[in-house]
Write a protein that binds this DNA or RNA. Structure first.
Lengths: 225, 225
DNA sequence: CTTGTTCTGTAGTGATCGCTACAGTACGCT
DNA sequence: AGCGTACTGTAGCGATCACTACAGAACAAG
């Protein structure tokens, strides 16, 4: 019913028999297990019994920390998003001595790196996004919100990057294509890790996007004439 | 246990009470319901009871036509793939009076049209593809096989189209990017139908790919020098 | 030591899961 | 009419589902 709020500094460990974790530590272990399982089997495939087994904690503990399975999976999305965000923010774009194109390509490659380093977020998120059950899961709503934020951030930086060359609609189209290609490449790599080199693929994507931007601004010039 | 093989021309209809469908007709109705539900809720979310309810046929009929839930969902993938293939094959590329680029763009747009007209195939396929349970579903294997065939077909036509300009590895990279972008744009449209115009997006994708191809062949020239 | 809080362990609840046994019905064939 | 095949309807199997009641363990503070 009630969820733990207060953190605790996790007391001494019993060396014997079952390892007893406390509070935050248990919560993390439950989230670890749930992340793993939900990434393997999706929303319905994630059973509380399986999470219990893989985390080593009984169902009652899971329900002490989370009020329902729905909320548990929402918490999984939330945590994995924040981890992904950390990876993205840890990156500082190089400022000097690089051309615009090189900066653009570096930003795209950084996105690729964040996706490979924290794949749980996008994997589970896409699974949830594709579902369209009558009453949608909390986690799905959460993923779509967070994704919308990422999209808006991308639009903002594209507007700065392509200022003058493209109008607002073109920038949105380009951002949509970027996000779609990133999703698709991620899936391709999940399906066949050996068949795709994400670094190369995102490098090529960057070049493709610059080509598309040129085509868009050429189109604009043509129609303005 | 045994599945029906023979078709029947579906006898007279009882006007009263429960509509009694026969043979092939029932099979189709079960597949319709299963397609709908699996597209909404994924593999685990598709329960036989729900398929029974939505098709109006009892579970025993489902198990008369299909030997297991696994095989049922595999049959869903198979049927929706064939429907998608029909849409693709119904298209004859225009031969005369168009430039190479226009032909390329027309082919890409046709893919987009097939995806919007028969979305069940890719929707369920991608949901299955993202799952990675220990013993994978038959339907997932089937989707990945079929997808591999589509990829090889694309590589073959790209090899013809970019003959001379690109080598084999470049063509594969370009085909991978194409497929990834198509998947991603499809997802974007499923998530927010109002936010994406697939025709425009695929048009832009075609231009982006041509740009990427130019970048690749420029890279090749540079390294050969 | 006592008391209160936090978390775990045991043991369930009723509902739903995939699947089946089997009798009953509809219909074509002769 | 009789017979066989092709389904459908009812009923229910054991397993697993999400979730809960509740007592007890671990520890902190007094």
């Amino acid at each position: 019913m009630a969820a733990a709020k207060t953190a605790r500094k996790s007391g001494p460990r019993r060396a014997e028999r079952k390892i007893r974790a406390h509070g935050e530590e248990s919560r993390e272990r439950i989230l670890d297990a749930a992340t793993q399982i939900a990434g393997e089997r999706g929303y319905d495939g994630t059973s509380v019994a399986l999470v219990s087994e893989r985390s080593g904690l009984p169902a009652s503990s899971i329900y002490w920390h989370f009020e329902s399975k729905d909320q548990l999976i929402a918490a999984v999305i939330e945590r994995s998003f924040h981890r992904w965000l950390e990876r993205m923010h840890a990156w500082v774009p190089p400022r000097e001595g690089e051309s615009q194109e090189e900066l653009f390509e570096a930003a795209i490659r950084r996105t690729a790196a964040a996706l490979t380093e924290a794949p749980d977020f996008l994997r589970l998120g896409l699974m949830l996004a594709l579902e369209r059950r009558p009453q949608e899961a909390t986690a799905r709503r959460m993923f779509l919100q967070v994704r919308e934020r990422a999209y808006k951030g991308m639009v903002a930086s594209y507007e700065a990057f392509f200022a003058g060359a493209l109008d607002a609609a073109d920038v949105r189209a380009l951002a949509t294509l970027t996000m779609a290609a990133a999703d698709g490449l991620f899936i391709a790599q999940e399906v066949d890790p050996a068949g795709v080199d994400l670094d190369d693929a995102f490098q090529l994507l960057a070049e493709a996007l610059l080509g598309a931007a040129k085509a868009l601004s050429a189109r604009r010039d043509r129609s303005r004439r």
